[in-house]
Every structure is written in structure tokens, then in C-alpha cells.
Design a protein around this nucleic acid. Structure first.
Length: 299
DNA sequence: TTGTGTTTTATTGCCTCC
DNA sequence: GGAGGCAATAAAACACAA
């Protein structure tokens, strides 16, 4: 692309001040140059097809001025000139009105600004490129902000989901713990009962719980001694929570009776021993009183 | 003053449309 | 095939710190 700037023809005196006076119109600068009137206008007049520009310009050079003049001429070329502030503002307003440039409008702008139509076209082209870049940046920022918001929401939902899962697990465990306690209670208290009665108690307990816990519960009417300590370790608030069955009460009473009078050390709760008046009446088994009427807790 | 980074102007090559 | 748009790029113009 070397020498291309010269092809665009400034027509200004060599070594002109590098810093441009933005208040000075380009065409006035050209008018001050040694070449007189703006040669860019001549170039602009041929500004049609891009490929023909340089060709026409070369033809223009050689035919009109000859080789010697060309060397001197191009050595004197001012390379690029920035538009004045006023020109740029005018173009900006025009661009805001419509960023596409119709041929008539291009000619009109060129006349009003004293520039080449080609310069107007180039300016609009570059301006559209800048606008597109800016738009991409704006879009990126917008989408990035939206992404950050969504990511935050997503993270919060994940945390909430984890909390809920933990809560569900805790509730399930508590529920299962209660179940285990109830089973243990059955295993303990149903001893001596007819099997058909003990089974009814167990089925009632199982039916109150999830299917998944059934396997864990099982019916083991024969197991007795090993379950006593498990009863004391269970974590449910009430032994008979959610279970209202005379049979169960019967079993619990039976259990209480045993604990209180035969194997109370395995209950594992000191208060059972420390409470002097803790003792179930001997006849409680037969009257079927509710455990919930007493301070008989296993936690 | 000079080196360096940024902005602006302009060119080139390719593509699409008519 | 000419005209015009766009992406990529060159290069001048400019800003600014050291």
C-alpha cells in the first residue's frame, strides 16, 4: 500500500505543519497550497468504481503533467488530512439521520463540505465500521450483564436446592428414626403377645411409613434383648407419635412394665433412675393406659 | 524530544446486487 | 460488468507519558 496516500492527492505544500488546525477547513488548506485549487476535487470527480480510481488518476498524471512533474508533485504531497471539527460534526449529524449514503446525498454532502464524494463515502464506511464495533461492545456488555445475573440466580437456586435436599434428608432420617424406634418398641413389647396381635401392630406401623422403610422395619417378633438399647438411642420425641392403637399401647405398657421392674438399667436414661416416683403401676399393662400420659421418653 | 499507543483516513480485495 | 458495501489493513495524524 506504499504510495497510496499520494494517489489520493492532497496537493499541499511539503512539510506543512504536522498539527492540523481543526478550525481550518480542508479546502481552504488546499487553497493555500502551492498547487492552488484542490486537486482532490479532480480526483473526486473520477471517484466511481474503486478499481478505476488509480487507473484514472495515473492517466490523469501522465497525460496532463508528465513524469518529471509527477516526481516533484508526489514528493510534495501532503499525505492525509483530517477533517475539520465542523465537517465531522456535520457528517455525524448526517450519519445519525441515516447511516446509509445514497449517491445524491453523497454528492450533496460533498458540495456542502467541500470534500470529494469519495471522501464522504469513505467517511461513512469507516463510521459504519466504528458504529458496528461499538454496537458489538454494547451487546457484549448487555449479554455479559445478563449472563452474570442468570449465573447468580442459578447459583442461588443450586444453594437453595442443596438446602432443600438436606432438609428432605433430615426429615427422612428423623422419620426413619421414629420408625426404627417404633419397631424396636414392637420388638420389645410384643413379646409374649400372640403372634397375630404383634403382627397387627407391626403392620399398622409399617402402613404409616414410606414403602422404602418397610424393609428396614421388618417383622421380627422373636428378637427382643438386643433391641432394648436401641430403643434408648432412638431420637423421636414420642414413642407412639402418630400411632393410636390399643394393641400398641398394650405393647408399650408391657415394655414399660418390663423396663421398670426387670431390666431398667438398659433403658440408658438416668432420669429413669433418678426419678423416685418413676414406676408404672403393675396393673398398667392390664388397663392399657396410654404411654403419652406419662413422662416416659426415650431421648 | 521521542517513543508508543490510539484514532482517523484511505486503500485493497472480495462479495453481492442489479 | 459496474457500483457499492464490508473486512482487513496501511499509514498518517494525533495524544501523551517519560
Amino acid at each position: 500500500m506504499a504510495g497510496s496516500a499520494a494517489a489520493y492527492g492532497g496537493g499541499h505544500a511539503p512539510n506543512q505543519a504536522k498539527k492540523r488546525n481543526f478550525d481550518q477547513p480542508l479546502d481552504s488548506i488546499a487553497a493555500e497550497s502551492s498547487l492552488g485549487s484542490n486537486t482532490m476535487l479532480n480526483f473526486g470527480a473520477v471517484g466511481g468504481a474503486k478499481r478505476s480510481r488509480n487507473m484514472v488518476y495515473t492517466s490523469f498524471d501522465q497525460e496532463e503533467f508528465g513524469e518529471e512533474y509527477l516526481d516533484e508533485y508526489f514528493n510534495q504531497q501532503e499525505k492525509k488530512r483530517r477533517l475539520t471539527v465542523d465537517q465531522v460534526q456535520f457528517l455525524e449529524r448526517s450519519f445519525e439521520a441515516d447511516n446509509k449514503l445514497e449517491p445524491d446525498r453523497k454528492i450533496q454532502l460533498a458540495k456542502e463540505l467541500g470534500l470529494q464524494p469519495r471522501q464522504i463515502a469513505v467517511w461513512f464506511q469507516n463510521r459504519r465500521a466504528r458504529w458496528k464495533t461499538k454496537q458489538l461492545e454494547t451487546d457484549y456488555e448487555t449479554f455479559h450483564a445478563r449472563y452474570e445475573t442468570l449465573k447468580t440466580d442459578y447459583d442461588n437456586l443450586l444453594k437453595e436446592n442443596d438446602k432443600l435436599k438436606t432438609e428432605v434428608l433430615r426429615l427422612k432420617q428423623n422419620n426413619l428414626g421414629g420408625d426404627a424406634k417404633k419397631v424396636n418398641l414392637q420388638l420389645l413389647d410384643c413379646k409374649g403377645l400372640p403372634e397375630v396381635m404383634a403382627r397387627e401392630v407391626n403392620e399398622r406401623v409399617i402402613s404409616d411409613n414410606e414403602e422404602s422403610s418397610v424393609a428396614a422395619l421388618g417383622f421380627k417378633n422373636e428378637q427382643q434383648s438386643s433391641s432394648k438399647s436401641e430403643v434408648s438411642n432412638a431420637g423421636s420425641p414420642r414413642l407412639t407419635d402418630g400411632i393410636n392403637s390399643p394393641l400398641l399401647e398394650l405393647c408399650v405398657s408391657s415394655h414399660a412394665f418390663d423396663q421398670g421392674y426387670s431390666d431398667s438399667s438398659q433403658i440408658g436414661e438416668d432420669n429413669l433412675h433418678e426419678e423416685p416416683d418413676y414406676a408404672f403401676p403393675l396393673n398398667s399393662f392390664y388397663y392399657g393406659f396410654s404411654v403419652e400420659d406419662h413422662t416416659f421418653n426415650f431421648w
